[in-house]
Design a protein around this nucleic acid. Structure first.
Lengths: 126, 126
DNA sequence: GTAACTGCAAAATATTTGCATCCTT
DNA sequence: AAGGATGCAAATATTTTGCAGTTAC
């Protein structure tokens, strides 16, 4: 099993995600860290952290990949349904601490689900 | 206001979507139609048909753009919540004819929502 | 020491744009 | 005729891959 090493890149990214419950897109991270680490490394570290269950990822309205703390998504125990909010004005993307029942559908076996709510965040409601 | 012209490209794409309630990714359409029309045209016609309210689009698990009939999504009246199913094995993507209540969240004004259910379709359940 | 990790360059993939030309109304 | 639509090439953007060199354990 791949043990994840505490490299400088890993520590940097972990610290960033420790400081917020919001989700961050890979594009933003690559831009923000382009002096500190290579974009390939950003992609690879995020993937590793997701494999380890430390982060989780989802696709935003824009088709970009977003990451957030695994438990930033659901407070106590993890649900397979990840509800996320994305502000259409400022782009702020947050994990919502609400539990939603995954609907069951005949003819299909549902493994997981993603719910993306689009609207305006507190700051952009004017 | 832009009146949409009944060009050969428009007719071709309309016919394709008339024949199914499933969603189709732009990538598949571009590939399937590359002898009949240019990929740029595929992108532009789909955009126009969405503007006209004939199709609607959403982002799949893979980050790709998918289109389906507007009313393939919800049977009678249109909900802002679009529930879609995507098969993790064969990639089949369908609009689900179920109504789901959009949850309201404090501090946010929710305009619309996308629910993507991932699992296995009937054919891939073995 | 060795397997994991990183950086760099290049490839792969998806989508958009500019512009000249063509077609629908 | 005029404005919308198309094709083609090139640009943009995101993500992935290969490989040589470095680092954590």
């Amino acid at each position: 099993m791949g043990i994840i090493r505490k490299t400088k890149s890993v520590k940097t990214l972990l610290k960033i995600f420790e400081q917020t419950n919001n989700a961050i897109s890979v594009v933003i991270l690559v831009e923000q860290l382009h002096q500190k680490m290579n974009k390939t490394t950003v992609y690879r570290v995020l993937e590793r952290l997701e494999d380890e269950g430390i982060l989780h990822s989802f696709t935003g309205k824009d088709g970009l990949k977003w990451y957030a703390k695994y438990n930033g998504c659901s407070s106590s125990n993890h649900m397979d349904l990840h509800p996320h909010f994305q502000c259409r004005d400022c782009g702020k993307t947050a994990c919502l601490p609400i539990d939603i029942l995954i609907p069951s559908v005949s003819n299909y076996r549902i493994d997981s689900a993603e719910l993306l709510l689009i609207g305006q965040c507190e700051d952009c409601l004017s």
